[in-house]
Amino acid sequence: MIAPAVVAGVLLAGPLVALLVRAPWDRLGELLAGPVVLPALGLSFGTASASTVVCVVLGVPLAAVLAGSDGWPRLLTRVARAVVATPLVLPPVVGGIALLMLLSRTGLLGQPLFTAFGVTIPFTTAAVVIAQAFAGLPFLVLSVEGALRGVDPRFAVAAATLGASPWATFMHVTLPLAAPGLAAGAVLSFARALGEFGATITFAGSLPGVTETMPVAAYIALTSDPGAAIAIAVVLVVVALVVLLALRERWLTGLRA
C-alpha cells in the first residue's frame, strides 16, 4: 500500500516541485513585466473576472430553478443535470468546436447575429469570456444549487408570512443564507476560467492582448521563450494554491449536491 501511495504523491506533487525548482526566480520580475507575460496576465484576470460575473448572473438563476425542480418529471431533471455537468466531462477542445458551431459567422446563432447586426464573436475578447463562462458555469451552478437546497425551507415560509414576495424572499433570505456556496462556486469558476485553454484557443485563438490568455501564452511561449512560459506557470500555480487555501474543504461540501 505504501509504495503506490508514495508514487501517487510524487505524481501529484512532483511536477509542481520541479516547476518551482526550475523557475527562473532571479528573472521572474523582469519576465512577468515583459512583453509576453504582462498583456496575458492582464487579459487573463480581466476575462476571468468578467466570466465569473457572467457565471454568477446566469448561474444563480439556473441553480435556483434546479433547486426547485423536485416536482419535475424525473427524466427532465436528469436531462437538466446532464446538460449542466456537460462542460465538466467534455474535452475543452470539443467545447471550443461546439461554441464555433453555435457562434461562428456560419453558426446556428452566429449567422443570424452576423446578418442582422454584423456581429462576429469568435476570435474576440468576448469569445474568451464566453469560452471561460462555458467551462466555469457547472462549478457555480452545482455549488449554488447544493447550498440553496441546504437552506431550511422554514425561513422562506417565515419570510412569505412577513410579506416578502418569492423574489424578495430569494434575494434577502435564501440567497444570503446560501452565500458560502455562492462564494465557493464563484472562486471555483474563476479558477477554472483562469486555467481555460482548449476551448479558448479553439474558439478565440491566440491574438496577443486580445485573446491570448495566460495558459495560451504559456503554451505558445514554451518553444520560443521558455522562461516566460515558466513564469506564467508559476503565477498560475500560485493562484491555484490561493484558491485551495481560500476554499479549504468547502469546495467539496459545496459540490456535494
Partner: peptide, 18 residues
Amino acid sequence: PERRPVGLVLQQPALFPH
C-alpha cells in the same frame, strides 16, 4: 401568503440567522 394579513410564528422560530 405575502399578501395576507396573517402572521405565523413557527415552533422553531425561524429567525433569519444572517
